[in-house]
Design a protein around this nucleic acid. Sequence first.
DNA 1: TCTGGGGTCCTAGGACCC
DNA 2: TCTGGGGTCCTAGGACCC
Length: 421
Amino acid sequence: MPIALVDGNNFYVSCERVFDPSLEGRPVIVLSNNDGIAVARSEEAKALGIRMGEPFFRIRDLVRREGVRVFSSNYPLYADMSRRMNETLARFSPEVEVYSIDESFVGLGGFRRRELVAYARDLRATMKTWTGIPVAVGIGPTKTLAKLANRCAKKMPGFDGVCDLTDPAPRARILPTVPVAAVWGIGPAATLRLAQLGVRTAADLRAMPPELARRILTVAGARIVRELNGDSCLDLDLLPAPRKGTAVTRSFGRPVVAWTDMEEAVSAFAARAGEKLRAQGLAAAHLAVFMHTHRFNRDPAYANVRAANLVPATDDTFALVGAAVRAARAIWRDGFRYTKAGVVLADLVPRARVAPDLFARGADGRAARLMAAMDALNARMGRNTVFPASAGLARPWKIRAERRSARYTTSFAELPCVAAR
DNA sequence: TCTGGGGTCCTAGGACCC
DNA sequence: TCTGGGGTCCTAGGACCC
């Protein structure tokens, strides 16, 4: 069955452009949390030489000189635009696998080959009209080839956003022009090892004996070789698999030096982690807290992590906050400038399968009702309408986000205004 | 002189993805 | 001065079992 990969072009930038047409045709970048690095660039910004992951402070001058428009990340907006994209895709196929915030695989069984490209063009145009997001569509007999086709649709002139590699003939033409590092699943380490064997292009990799691929790149590599040959090894996952772990980690807006600030931060992270658990109907049996000082400067360095078992497994914010603060207290050392900390939950199990503990907090169901009430208030009135007091009000450690656009689609207070005269 | 074979489970670390 | 956050999978090696 042919598989399409539909991918939003420069997704975060495209989301910003939907609500501010003056950004069209201009260099635009979106920054990571804490305004640290560039995580999305418009084509114009790429042309200026701004790289993926480039630290913002290093391109300040360039940004000013060239009039680059800069945005902090606005995840509520991007997540909602992503949801709209997938709703649109659902009109085109019953088989959609949401792969990431800006990419989905789409099953295209039942089409004749010559219909595929026309259908993909229709999908692309509809997506632009309905959501405002420009997408590229890559089609292939396997996920790996669909990914590769998607890259060609975006990068190579002449495709105009749709590339079909279902037939062997265009594959034979295109694979030799694709560097092996651009193949899905081939990272920097594999690229290096392959280069030593003279394997430089996707075509070279495709021609590799499976046994050799297995030895050099382990089972994942052997699978990639088969997929490049049109032999499908990766099925569409139509139902998202349950999470195995979840984490809330942040760099601080400025270094934390006081325990009370760290306690607030860790409480807030644990509370957020609890919300994520409950949203997915999960409970955690294992929790870890880490904190560390700056990685790049010469401040005295300290890093540590402390784990704890949660018995019974829980999704209760106050149980999580308590365990997280205890773990943090155990590794806290005075006299350091902490720049990052996080709460990591693992061993997630379905909430409904946790055996109740007669003596645990909330055995009478009151804690669960409290959580439900908190979640309902925060959903209706906005995040952090209610939160544990230990998470604090001042939050001096909060991330920087100085250039955030409005949450146009998820907050009534921030709806875009339109005037006609 | 000669010192087995086959499992499972857990964890840490590496690699990769967006 | 200023360098993100959140995931998954695989392997090797140790501990333990019979």
